[in-house]
Design a protein around this nucleic acid. Structure first.
Lengths: 207, 207
DNA sequence: CCTGTTTTTAACCAAACGGTTAAACCCTAT
DNA sequence: ATAGGGTTTAACCGTTTGGTTAAAAACAGG
């Protein structure tokens, strides 16, 4: 029972399956993940995967929907919250870089899986309701009108911030190559990002 | 013959295989790509894939090495060229966004494939020599000393620029969701990036 | 303690996969 | 023309993969 929407109580077989599937799908994607590997990681028989979730697709859908369900509000937050603009930007960058450095696989999973199976995502996994950019747009326009920040397209500002927060984490090996850093230096570099991105954005917004 | 390093003359079977493999691997990655699909796309028998490239791994390596071989110099260019800083930044952003909008799959391929098979890449595919950041570092420090730009860590500046150029293209569906744009609006938005990123970076660098 | 239900397992299946083989085909040089 | 090389093909092979099944095990209520 309890096959409806959310996962049931912890330590149940169904939950162990979901957790194992979450880990494997997150790192290997739909194509790279194998049902046997998920079963092994969960420490149970492979047939149980099909007993609780009918097919690989269904299990994948459950995991992908959960991942996106957690990620979407994090993005919406920057856009919808009612905090004053500068405070919002400071808070968002700090919070967002924290989330990503604890879960570096999530953005890459979303991006590359959407890219490989656009239909599946658009039809069944993506949330129906979009974030409402009006608040952010209005805030930026007001600050511009008041002469407190430089003129800028709000949508580009959002994407600039998100880009600088996420990209270095998902492209870590590429960045290490470009900058010629070893593993420890890279770790340090990523820790500096909080302050550096905040500083950079606020500097760009000066009138 | 001609099995050495580069691909042989156009229209040869080997070249058709390479082209088809390039397209399939680029969009689906190692795990998602199937040898039969590559053969079908090339319009030849599957056994020929093994005749010219011994295994799926070898074929993949050839393609991946070519992709990275084209991408790495593009990044190095920002870092190594001797142009004056502002001109270099303007030129790089313009050139780089152009390259990516024509080949949107390449950065995502590199990032997600490195992530799934780090050993393979580090051992056999990545170029041995790193870009030399000294030129860029010196330029930034000189401009700072002369008071022509604000104080900033050169490495973070590089990553900020690359992030804002690449990320919106690889995370297109995610950006569409965040901004609530339809396909046509998104296309327009991406075309605006050239000017917007340039403006944003130069604004952030003002003393 | 028995009985019916749910949960778990080992064994199995068909399809898809990467890879091989042997024969057919196609050149070109003698 | 023909012998010998490289090239191409259909058929095949062993393994892996997602998925099924039938029976065993665990659990529940009476």
């Amino acid at each position: 029972m309890a096959k409806k929407e959310d996962q049931p109580q912890a330590d149940s077989t169904e939950q162990k399956i979901f957790d194992a599937a979450h880990e494997v799908f997150l790192q290997k994607g739909m194509d790279g993940a194998k049902m046997q590997e998920i079963a092994d990681l969960a420490g149970i028989n492979k047939a149980l995967l099909h007993y609780y979730y009918r097919s690989k697709e269904k299990l994948y859908e459950a995991v992908a929907r959960a991942i996106i369900g957690h990620a979407a509000p994090v993005i919406s937050q920057l856009i919808e919250s009612e905090l004053p603009l500068e405070e919002k930007i400071r808070h968002f960058i700090d919070f967002y870089i924290g989330v990503i450095s604890r879960n570096p696989f999530i953005p890459l999973f979303i991006i590359s899986e959407i890219n490989k199976h656009p239909e599946r995502f658009i039809e069944t996994i993506l949330p129906k309701e979009l974030p409402k950019p009006q608040v952010f747009m209005r805030q930026v326009e007001e600050e511009i009108a008041a002469g407190r920040i430089r003129e800028i397209h709000p949508k580009h500002l959002i994407i600039n911030i998100i880009s600088m927060c996420i990209f270095p984490f998902i492209a870590k090996p590429m960045a290490r190559f470009a900058l010629g850093l070893n593993s420890a230096e890279m770790k340090l570099f990523l820790e500096e990002r909080r302050d550096q991105v905040t500083e950079f954005v606020l500097a760009a917004l000066r009138p």
